[in-house]
Simulated scan of single mutants.
Amino acid sequence: MGVEVIDERSVQLRVALLVARETPLDAFFEQVSREAAQLLGIDATGVMRYIDDGRAVVVGVYRAGGSRMLPVNAELDFDRTESALGRARAARAPARVSSYDRARGELPAVMRSMGMSVSTATPILIDGEPWGALVGTAPEEDALPAGHEAKLVGLAELVAQAIVNDRRRAELAASRTRLLEAGDETRRRLERLLHEGAHQHVVALALKLRVGLGRTDPASAEAEVLRDALADAMEASAELSELARGLHPAVLSERGLAAALQAVAARSRVPVNLRALPGRRHSAVIETTAYLMVCEALANAQRHARANECWLHADDRGGALIVEVRDDGVGGAVVRAGGGLESVSDRAAALGGSFVLESRPGGTAVRIEIPTGM
């Protein structure tokens, strides 16, 4: 018994809304399969992606009324000329077959084992090339009359648009990540130049001043000048070290985020309670984003919040890196244009993550969550 047939415009409107809402493709394909079943009035439909001209994989499926259907991620061969999938791919137009008696390959065998004799395929075309197809199967001709496959053309066009949109979002995200990585590499290069160049020169100067001071009468005017110069050199050395760490600390590259966060917590003028640290390495751009977020949050706690204590939590959870810094200060922190918190927020967004700032009298919390792909 088939599902209730509904209006084609209603189906397309609902699917168009899914496209507009940027529904993740796995959930989108599942819903499209359901809508296709309702549109055709049958119990078994799906979305299949072509792997090549003789093989396809199921990416979405709907089954009702006890009907059998291949699961998502199932791959199978299809006959290029005697299957609806093969004909739709070749003709770039809706196709159907009413019998699999003469067809070869895995698909005909599966269809026969499920008691299906009629199959339709409406191609999903991207830039004129077949990406995949909306498929429907039924045990007999009366359940899926000739011409029904054409009803799915509008639906297939919406599926194609959803796939193109997803690709463009992925390309945009990859482009933004590359920009972050390029900026981070520049920071690392500047850190090396400072550490190996200017900082080393200042250290060498300080050593020479110490030698000169040791050879000079401590009570002389020259000794006083040398002491002042040595103090200036030591201050410059400390400032260069701090600047280099702010650009990109060597410990972050060499030992990872956990070690870098321990180091920044140890240097903080406000006591920091370490509640959790990540147990594994992440990509450089993710670790740098997390590190910069912690540095910015601790700097705000020290300079503006008049905080007495901070709490740092950085943990891997559910395929994401979650980092949070809280303080017990006066609150009032905001994201300002061009400020450090805005930079952190932008970096998190570029990596597909989220940024949350909560600040009120009694404390401020800064939190980022970045997908790690696991």
Rank of each mutant, 00 (worst) to 15 (best):
D101Q: 07
M111P: 03
S83T: 13
G86L: 09
F78Y: 07
I51P: 08
L39I: 08
V97N: 04
G115S: 05
V97W: 06
D101P: 00
D77N: 12
P24V: 10
I51E: 15
R55L: 05
A64I: 08
V118I: 11
S98C: 13
I42M: 11
Q38R: 04
L17C: 02
A20W: 08
S113A: 12
M114R: 00
Q38S: 09
A91D: 15
A56G: 00
A103M: 11
D77P: 01
A95S: 08
L76E: 11
R112H: 01
D43Q: 15
A103C: 12
R49I: 01
T45N: 09
D52G: 03
V61R: 14
S117N: 15
E82H: 14
E82Y: 11
Y62F: 15
F28E: 10
V19L: 06
A95Q: 08
R112N: 07
V32I: 06
V118F: 03
F28I: 06
P94D: 07
R80S: 15
L40D: 10
S99A: 13
D77I: 06
A27K: 03
V58I: 12
R87L: 13
S33H: 02
V118M: 05
F78K: 00
M48S: 13
A27W: 04
L70S: 08
Y50E: 08
R102G: 10
G54A: 14
G115D: 05
A56S: 01
V19D: 11
V19H: 02
E82R: 15
G41V: 07
L17H: 13
A90M: 13
R49T: 04
A95G: 06
R96T: 08
A109H: 02
A84D: 09
T23V: 15
Y62L: 04
D79H: 12
P108H: 09
A93M: 10
G105V: 06
F28S: 08
G41H: 03
Y50V: 08
P71W: 03
D79S: 13
R87N: 06
V57N: 02
L107P: 00
E30H: 13
M111Q: 11
Y50S: 05
I51D: 14
R21P: 00
V57E: 13
S98G: 15
S99I: 04
G60I: 10
S83N: 12
A109Q: 11
Y50W: 07
R89D: 08
M116R: 03
E75Q: 15
V59Q: 03
L70Y: 04
D79K: 04
F28L: 12
A109R: 07
L40V: 10
G86M: 12
M111R: 00
M114I: 01
L85M: 04
T81S: 13
L107S: 10
L17E: 15
A44E: 06
P71I: 01
I42K: 05
V110T: 11
M111A: 12
L25D: 05
M111D: 09
R63K: 12
V58M: 14
A44C: 10
R68H: 14
V61F: 02
G115A: 09
V59L: 09
D53V: 07
P24K: 05
F78H: 01
R34A: 15
L70D: 07
Y100S: 14
G60Q: 07
I51T: 09
A90C: 09
Y62C: 07
E82V: 02
V32W: 02
S98Q: 15
V19E: 11
V61Y: 06
M69P: 00
G60D: 14
E35F: 12
